[in-house]
Nucleic acid binder design. Structure first.
Lengths: 93, 93
DNA sequence: CGCATAATTAGACAGTTGGCTAATTACTCA
DNA sequence: TGAGTAATTAGCCAACTGTCTAATTATGCG
């Protein structure tokens, strides 16, 4: 849950990748086939997401299976809840 | 809850502004005094946050009071919860 | 081995972003 | 009205980002 996490989430393509992985794990190629973006560009996005801890990669044969890493998403939720929770003592006792 | 929201959250200065406003509303100058950044640059950040719907500005005299707009933060939480909730039927019945 | 396939790394390039200074707007008050 | 203060807008620039093509790595298979 650092700057890298938010930067990673800032790109719509990467968020769409995460939504896809919310359903099930997928190979890099399988994911890439859903986008009109070159494979190297997709690979770059995978790298950003992985380095931010938002997805995990598992190599199997010549393919890489990516899956969502929910721990960072949970941390992010905690941060947001803290933001919502503070400074409300008067209105919401 | 669109691309603009995530872009706005991608900058650490803007997130720090939001944390400050989580405690209480503050004037632009009051916020700016906490940063080692020029007033125009801070004003730019306020503009980004406001246009993303993350903060609200209320003019009073020559000052502008900014406050957190929690509705977008709540929407963001819903998106994240959806991300966490999907595709888990086997593991978490 | 040698060729095909999956994916990545390398390097280049246009567009975006975040910072600055200078100028402008809006308001207060003597 | 005019000086002073709060904040913004305008315009510029270096750094970063997302995209591409070309090249490379790693695995599978006849």
């Amino acid at each position: 849950m650092n700057d890298e996490t938010f930067k990673a989430l800032a790109d719509p393509t990467r968020r769409r990748i995460m939504r896809l992985l919310g359903d099930r794990e997928m190979t890099a190629g399988e994911i890439a086939s859903q986008f009109d973006i070159s494979a190297p560009s997709m690979s770059h996005h995978f790298g950003v997401l992985k380095s931010a801890g938002l997805i995990n990669g598992r190599k199997e044969g010549q393919q890489i299976y990516y899956s969502l890493d929910t721990t960072v998403v949970q941390d992010l939720m905690a941060v947001l809840m803290d933001l919502l929770g503070r400074g409300k003592s008067e209105e919401n006792p």
